[in-house]
Design a protein around this nucleic acid. Sequence first.
DNA 1: ATTAGGG
DNA 2: CCCTAAT
Length: 694
Amino acid sequence: MVLQKRLDYGFNGYQVPPIPRATRSVRRRGIIRRKADGNGTCPFDLLATVAGKLLGEGESSPDSTGSVRGEEQGAIVKDEKVKEAEDRSLKEKSYTEGCYERGFFISELVSQAPVVNRSLSELPHVQNDTISRPASAGMSSDCSEKLLFAKQFVNGESREERENFSSKTEQEASGCGVFSSCTLDTENDKQVKIEQSNKAKVSTDKGAAISSSKFPDIWDKNPSTLVTSDESVKLSLSTYPAPCRSFPVIRSDVKLANKDDDENSGCTQPSTPNKASGAPRVRDRPIKKLLASKYWEENLKSDDEGHANSGAKTMHVYYNRNIGYKHQRSQRDFPFKKRKLFKCGSFSNSDGEMSTDGISSSPTNDLHGNASGSSKASSGGCAAAGTSVFNGGRAFLRPGDSHVKFRIKSFKVPDLFVDIPENATIGSLKRTVMEAVTAILGGGLRIGVVFQGKKVRDDNKTLLQTGISHDYKLDALGFSLEPNPVQTSQPLGQDCRSCVLPYETPQPLTRCPSPSTVVHTGIQQGRSDDHTGTSLSNCLESDHESAPSPHYAALEKISANSRALVPLTAVNAEALSAVPLRKPKRSEATQRRIRRPFSVSEVEALVQAVEKLGTGRWRDVKLRAFDNAKHRTYVDLKDKWKTLVHTARISPQQRRGEPVPQELLDRVLTAHAYWSQQQAKQQMKQPLETYLLL
DNA sequence: ATTAGGG
DNA sequence: CCCTAAT
């Protein structure tokens, strides 16, 4: 009967009808786990929150299970697969002739071989095994012959997967590409430029190019399988140049700049759509984020003009990425719209300072008065949120004013390590960087205060006692963002205790001028700080997710009057609480995964798999065609199929996105119809059997 | 963990 | 894509 049906259908690619599997020996793999939640345990949660919001939500989801899970797990799974395969072969009973012609299978195996540049000829054992594998005895049904073939097929399949694995691991092991060089402007450059021309025209580093290894187009070679090399590029991101440094320098030379001149730069600019993702060739491979270790370096003193000062110190802190990540997650539920509102996507810093400089001079409106002046700074800060060190600050002093006012110019990003496949899209790269940065901030930050080259550890000291008065020496005060000790596995060498809480200011709509945050990418070997690499802008223009709210610029304000920072702290906390600060609450907040449109190649693979396996076996489909696409879960595949069917039914005019070849859509409809029918049949038989049993 | 469907 | 209910 089944056979008849099948023949009627005339499609010989279908394999077997869905068979309920009582037991699964193979589990998970590539399943995206979300809902990582972490509680803000750091004392400076506030700051972390702020920073996180500034950054906006991190893009990529933690779908990558990491590159570590190579061979070891692979080996395990292999066996399981074989087991399952055999297991299944014994269970599946309704087979149809057409499918089991050896030729068919063999060719299938060949065409589906996940190994990019291999053919069966190179893998004799596979072929042999596939063909000569003896059928296991113990079949009870009368379709032993069919089972035999089925088994062969299944075995072949598992073989295929084995091969898949080995090749994968191989490539994983050796596929560490390297970005050769990138360039971009340094912040210092910008600063200089800005200083020179009041116009604050900043050359963005958008041009930063990743001149690097070719982006192998694996797709072309084997479009039907989603297996690609696992070559990945590891980027070491750090501030440029070299170890991030720069403490903000409080300066008295307040400059006013044309506010509008720089508004067009940076993230407000329309970004080039990330077409790459749609292209079949560019595989949105899981991004392996190896942000395991982060280095926080800071050199004390050195103003943003590039004047290196003496007394430079460097501090390395081992930063636990996982923890940071959790926090990152927890911050993600920040209202998307909010982020959009403020088109502040970059970590740029040049703008704010220059432009507004609305020096809030009024001694009285510490909070509101500053809002105007600081707001801008905030924007700058916001941009820089993902950084570890304040880059610059400005003091606004007024005679007779016992308050010390200043503004943080920017932050710099500490070293980050990113592991990303070569064929990843720029968009994903940006996302990754964003995530890295966010992770840091999410890990909890605290502020360190450096005065005259020394860390001020005593939080109880007053500014006056410390020497920070309205007539303190300029350039003597600095701030730093430091990893939270609570989250840090390694106590910072030079622990700094002092801190200043973030000062939140009402933020008018401002934008970030130029994506100046320079991310320094270098060849990452383990976690050596290699600063020879290149830099990239990590302004995620293409992804509107980069709209941190300027609200949270970690801007501190020091009042010479306030005995200590305590009073201010209270105020700040209060101010913050008034803002949509929902992070602490929804610690388990999850972020919506980034949208990753299926490429034609993927659709092709999906269709092919479904034709063979049918609908309703998404796990198998996943394993079969998307085993290496870690970001595609079976649910995704199912959803995609759903939309594909829908797409196929609507008129071409109504379709959106990357057009799917009509041919594929036709196959979708055909397969869908077929399997729907099968399913219906299955349903029919069910009650019948039940009836017979009774 | 998977599947199926609605949102 | 997300979320859930039901397996």
